[in-house]
Nucleic acid binder design. Sequence first.
DNA 1: CAGAATCCATGTGGATACTG
DNA 2: CAGTATCCACATGGATTCTG
Lengths: 113, 113
Amino acid sequence: MAQNQPIDPLFCPTETALGLIGGKWKGMILWCICRKTMRFNELHRIIPDISQRMLTKQLRELEDHKIIVRKVYPQIPPKVEYSLSTHGEALKPILDQLEDWSRSYLEQRQAES
Amino acid sequence: MAQNQPIDPLFCPTETALGLIGGKWKGMILWCICRKTMRFNELHRIIPDISQRMLTKQLRELEDHKIIVRKVYPQIPPKVEYSLSTHGEALKPILDQLEDWSRSYLEQRQAES
DNA sequence: CAGAATCCATGTGGATACTG
DNA sequence: CAGTATCCACATGGATTCTG
């Protein structure tokens, strides 16, 4: 950081990244979509605690940020599939490591108590 | 995910990890402390937009979660130093990758506009 | 099926003033 | 220096109802 220069929050990549994937539920949503292409209700079944409103909102944000791709099949009943974009694929190994990290974190915390 | 079993949010490691490091300002705070041990006002100078209240709060959370270590020197004027814990050190390479990822993300987004 | 719209409680975060 | 304490505005998120 040069010589203790102030950081512009808009240009701190770490903050940016966490802003993109740190939203509520996004961890679980990405965890699911990383594993396979998912439909809306499929996600909702796997993450029952999220409301439809929130699920929609988080998915839209991930889509707006080009991390996931939303594919609509124009048919009745509607069918929408969510999958990782190229950016999202690049994120996958990082999320895997994060998962390992927090797993060892949880284990150690548990061992202490 | 076995056969579309619901995930318990409490036991989704990805969500856990993002819960630990995804708080507001935590990206920038960690970015700083990853680089060197930091004092309170030092952090505040580098991240001027954060309020003292928030800085304190986020630091406490990171400390409670054993990601950083808070070392108090009992003297006047007070001196407090924040550094990475062992868990925090393990996180560092992951944050670096996240940083690379978001940098390429930002570049591509800019190229598009 | 995959949402959109509305209403409402609460939590989060900012500003300010004070302190050991 | 490194915080607390208090007050308050606003954003976040939940529950519910409705729809192409």
